[in-house]
Simulated scan of single mutants.
Amino acid sequence: MLRIVVACIALLAVAGSGSAMDRPVAPNGIALYSGYMNWKVVAPSYREDKGHIRIVTGNEIAVAALRAGTKPLPDGSVLAKVAWKAEKHPSFPVATVPGAFAQVEFMVKDAVKYKETGGWGYARFLGNELKPYGKDAGFVKECFGCHTPVADNDYLFTRIVTVP
């Protein structure tokens, strides 16, 4: 009986690690988070220079902290920024709608691990192939450089949207 229990535990461990191993991994070791489209929407945005329609989603830790106004966000917070190329709606040309998927980016809060980048780890995955961005882990300097103007907001451009 003990052998069966040990074999089952080993099988579950291997099966559980398989899904993580199938996910793309950024050069700094951050893997694509599965289920990020099931997280709560934090805010929409439009990036004019890229022509991207975006939504930012957050895991439960991030959303709870944003709603409470907690800054800095606690460790374990993860935000996903999902981007599509903007295009005109074919039947209603005054409407701009999401077209082709462009990328998904992640910000992962761990104040100790990512101390050099304001407590945030960054990852970007491009196109339908979800190709990890960056030749090496140094790509995060580019991400962090863009986020330094909002250092007083825990390096976040996004603020949670409110509705009545």
Rank of each mutant, 00 (worst) to 15 (best):
S17H: 12
G18F: 03
G18C: 05
S19V: 12
A20P: 04
M21H: 05
M21W: 04
R23A: 13
P24Y: 01
P24T: 10
P24R: 04
V25P: 01
A26H: 08
A26P: 09
A26L: 10
P27N: 10
G29R: 07
I30T: 09
I30Y: 04
I30L: 14
I30K: 02
A31Y: 03
A31K: 14
A31H: 10
L32A: 06
S34G: 04
S34L: 01
G35H: 08
M37P: 10
M37L: 11
N38L: 10
W39F: 02
K40Q: 15
K40D: 15
V41G: 06
V42E: 06
V42M: 02
A43G: 11
P44M: 13
P44L: 07
P44A: 13
P44Q: 15
S45W: 04
S45C: 13
S45V: 04
R47S: 15
R47V: 14
R47P: 00
R47Q: 12
E48P: 03
D49P: 01
D49L: 12
K50M: 06
K50H: 05
G51H: 06
G51I: 10
G51W: 08
G51Q: 12
I53T: 09
R54G: 02
I55R: 08
I55F: 07
I55K: 06
I55A: 09
I55W: 07
T57R: 12
G58L: 03
N59G: 09
V63G: 01
V63P: 05
A64L: 05
A65D: 00
L66D: 11
L66R: 10
L66E: 10
R67D: 15
G69L: 11
T70S: 01
T70Q: 13
K71H: 00
K71T: 06
P72A: 13
P72W: 05
L73T: 02
P74C: 12
P74K: 05
D75M: 01
D75A: 00
S77N: 09
V78L: 14
L79K: 08
L79S: 07
A80D: 15
A80R: 11
A80N: 12
A80Q: 14
A80I: 11
V82W: 03
V82E: 12
V82K: 01
V82S: 09
V82F: 03
A83T: 09
A83L: 02
W84P: 07
A86H: 04
E87M: 15
P90D: 06
S91L: 05
F92R: 13
F92Q: 09
F92N: 14
P93K: 05
V94E: 15
A95K: 12
A95H: 11
T96F: 00
T96N: 03
V97A: 05
P98A: 14
P98Q: 13
